[in-house]
Simulated scan of single mutants.
Amino acid sequence: MSAALLALAVVVAAMPAASAPASAPPSVPAVVLLPLGPDGTTSVKQARGVAAQLRDALDAGPVAEGLCTLLSSSKDDDQQAERCRRDATCLGEVAALRGADVIVAGVIAPGADGLLVSVVAVAASGKEALRRLEVTLRGDAADQRRIDRLVRSAVGPHALRGTLALTGDEGATVTLDGVPRGTLPLPGPLAPLVEGEHDLLVEKPGFEPYRRPVTIAHAETAQVKATLLPLTSGDRARVPGSDIGGDGDGRRGGAAPDGPPLDVVVVGGVGAGLVALGVIAGTWSLLDALAVEERAEQQQLMFPRDSGLLARGQILAWTADGLYLAGLGALGVAGALAYFTPAEQQP
């Protein structure tokens, strides 16, 4: 009896472990790369050489990074490549037979300034190409970068990756595409990031949020410095309890608002004074003009000859215009100062 109970206890204890699901590794696409075909005046040797470069780039890039697996070559690869060329339906059938998720095939041909490589990526049992890609190899040091981008694009857009080096105010929190990424200063660049546009948000209490779209390019590091601007008193978020004992707007003791800044008062006063002087000069000029008209009526002249009075009236009129303009300008400056001066900087 005791032996049976012991055996039952062992079975019951083992049941949770047996029923616990095993964590499956993330699925990555299996890729088949068929030999490239020669086109035009290119040779089979050239096509095989380029195909070898594509395979090496796949191994060193997406395969090494765990973004895909590369299936081994088959003895029928040359025949299948020749039969299908770049026909999507044919290639989709070959991919299904090989147990691949994506099959890549293509041709090389002479280009205007190099060797033109044209490939097509087709899903298993697919009838249309997922992606059609072209690149020109020029025989220079940049060819490796061109091949790397070509094979990654064939695998999928997710294989094109870059990094983001972010600097800014210490203690600010970083969110990228809605996902928290830490606090500045970050231990290193944010990587890997899929090529394209990302939404960057940097926040810190007491500062305006820094929100910008950031464009990431493959194999490059985007440099961004997030400059945070202090919040003005009108924009500052209310902190619960900060207006205790005050008048509801953050000031304590119900004190009345302070007056305008000194520079606004000075400039505004100068402007008002200039306008007043303009009024005086204009009035004086008007009186001179009326005096001229009165003398003209008395002497029955169409054009009076009192040149001194006329000259003074003209000068006064010009002076009035100048004072008006200067005064209005000063008042405008005072208004701008009052509008743009942050509230916390006002006395």
Rank of each mutant, 00 (worst) to 15 (best):
R251E: 05
L36W: 00
L201C: 14
Q314D: 01
R295G: 01
D249Q: 00
L337R: 00
G308L: 00
Q300E: 07
G308R: 07
Y210S: 03
P62Q: 12
L130W: 03
V266F: 09
G99Q: 03
G250D: 05
D143N: 04
E195A: 10
G49N: 08
V267Y: 04
S74T: 05
L228N: 15
C68V: 12
L58W: 12
T42G: 00
T227G: 08
K204C: 11
A14T: 01
V270G: 07
K75N: 04
A57P: 13
K45V: 05
T215M: 06
V122P: 14
Y210K: 12
R252T: 06
Q223L: 12
G327Q: 09
G182Y: 15
D306E: 12
E197Y: 01
P26R: 06
A256M: 04
D263E: 12
R252H: 05
R211G: 14
Y210M: 05
V194Q: 13
A217P: 07
L186G: 14
A22V: 15
P347H: 03
G106S: 14
A326W: 07
S2Q: 13
V11Y: 11
L200H: 09
K75V: 10
G168A: 12
I108P: 04
A338T: 04
T89E: 10
L5M: 08
Y324I: 09
I108Q: 02
S118C: 12
A237S: 06
G329A: 12
V279L: 10
A165E: 15
G254D: 05
T341Y: 01
T167D: 14
V28W: 11
A4N: 10
V44I: 00
V266L: 10
D243V: 03
S73Y: 03
A159K: 08
P21T: 14
D140G: 02
G178H: 04
V122W: 02
P185Q: 09
Q53D: 03
L301V: 08
R138W: 00
A326I: 10
P257D: 09
L160N: 13
G234E: 09
Y210T: 12
V63Q: 00
